[in-house]
Design a protein around this nucleic acid. Sequence first.
DNA 1: GCCTTGACATTGCAGTTGTATTGGAAAACG
DNA 2: CGTTTTCCAATACAACTGCAATGTCAAGGC
Lengths: 186, 186
Amino acid sequence: MPKKVDHAERRRLIADALMRVAAEQGLEAVSLRHVAAAADVSAGMVQHYFRTKDEMMTFALSVVQERSRRRVEAAMARLGDDPAPRDLLRAMVVALLPLDEPSREDGRVALAFLAYTAVRPQTALRSETQQMVGFIESLLPGGKSGDAAALLALMEGLGLYLLGGQYTPEQALAALDAQLDRLFSA
Amino acid sequence: MPKKVDHAERRRLIADALMRVAAEQGLEAVSLRHVAAAADVSAGMVQHYFRTKDEMMTFALSVVQERSRRRVEAAMARLGDDPAPRDLLRAMVVALLPLDEPSREDGRVALAFLAYTAVRPQTALRSETQQMVGFIESLLPGGKSGDAAALLALMEGLGLYLLGGQYTPEQALAALDAQLDRLFSA
DNA sequence: GCCTTGACATTGCAGTTGTATTGGAAAACG
DNA sequence: CGTTTTCCAATACAACTGCAATGTCAAGGC
């Protein structure tokens, strides 16, 4: 056997470069050569680790999803044991919002992939949305049906407006807290 | 002067073709030749009415915005004079949600442009978001700050999940009504 | 010491892209 | 009638795209 290299690591390296390109110039600018240049490797190497561009895109998409999943887990773990439901929900939503520059970058990439998959049903992003709705529902008092789905959608919308610059972080957080107030007051 | 043609109408015709292409295959598939083929005209004609692709894109973007604005106006006008604030708000949000197939198409195009403009600050989509927030605020009772922004963000998020297929129209409407209940109950 | 195998790099190719250019046709105006 | 001005078509072109093919090189197993 020849040189041993960490296959998975190389793929992540390339996917990182892809996400950098996508965050700055959109998915339309993602080409084998651009990604290779951003990763400072040859185009041949990219082809070596991804036999097709589609394979590369799909992998990058999974990296994006994985990263946001970890963000949420970390935020929730940071709360310690047995946190109050409201704190748990707030931490979860805040972890998913593009509030600082790194997560804004991720957000732009995620938005690009959202539009990308919207016209490519086969590249479906397996969504954990339904489980999230169930999880949120178990944390909400009262439990009017629709409240959980609304909170999740609120998060998504706040993310969009944060990315677009229509809402400031303060506005977004105020909106979130207003909603949590309503959900936990009565 | 030579043949007189309705300049604006031709441009709308081309923009419509562009939106069809974008709705089916995404903005990446939007090229002069594809759009021309979809409009069943020659590529030269497209170039005649839009000197550059960017000009065509910008115009199409404005058409999308204009169309959704009209949708809202029509829905609100349909309510007659002096409607209840809750009904007004509900009609407005429902008009913006991609609930049937035509508006789903528009939604896909809008989503594509959202990702498109996210990495092209100069092609900023002038947002009427702040005015909308103000308008909603004037209709809400109590008027906790943040409630209006939250409702608007909720709408956006519901739209995304409807497009993605994560929420059914029934789920989305249930979430909306649950929120309106909360806003108008206390 | 071969020699296989995996890790790259380079090059070529057919197709598509946006744009510039050219040319013709036809309609209003003098 | 002739000229001009707009409408549109066709073509040319350089740059780019994804992908396949080919080459080089080194690290192991036998």
